[in-house]
Amino acid sequence: MNVQVIERDGEPEYAVLPWADYQALLQAAGRTEGAQPSQPNTDAAKPLSELSALREGKGLSRDELARAVGISPHYLGMIESGERQPDAAILRALAWVLGISGWEA
């Protein structure tokens, strides 16, 4: 069995092993529930096309949200209209300010 141990502060915290080995361990323990790899929760992520509605739902103007995220209101407008695709840092900042999950790319 090929196991990678991840430590924090010198103490083992996680063990990472190949999927087949994990399945064999579950089978040996007589457990089969939870044996499928988890699928990403796409329902939690709001489409970027809903950005202006999310912003308005939070009671924020375009200027306020742009200032909170650290971009220009003009650039935020281009993101809202679909003209520009924000990078991962901007997506994380938008998600943080709007209090949503799923954009932490």
Rank of each mutant, 00 (worst) to 15 (best):
P73L: 01
L91W: 04
G57H: 09
H74T: 11
P12E: 00
I90D: 01
L25I: 15
P37K: 09
T32V: 13
R92K: 10
R31A: 15
N41D: 14
N41R: 13
W19E: 01
Q4F: 14
G34C: 00
E33H: 15
R67Q: 13
D87E: 03
V97N: 02
R92P: 00
L51M: 01
G70W: 12
K58I: 08
E104P: 08
Q4C: 14
E64Q: 14
L17I: 12
D21R: 12
M78R: 12
P12N: 08
Y75A: 00
V5H: 05
D87T: 06
I90V: 12
P47K: 07
Q85V: 13
I71F: 02
P12I: 13
Y75T: 07
E7C: 13
A20E: 09
L51R: 03
E80D: 05
W96Y: 04
A88G: 03
R55S: 01
L98K: 00
L60V: 05
D63L: 06
L48Q: 00
V5K: 03
L26N: 02
P47G: 01
S61K: 10
P37A: 02
R84S: 03
Y75C: 00
D21S: 11
I100A: 02
A44S: 05
I100R: 06
G77L: 07
D63M: 05
H74Q: 13
Q36S: 14
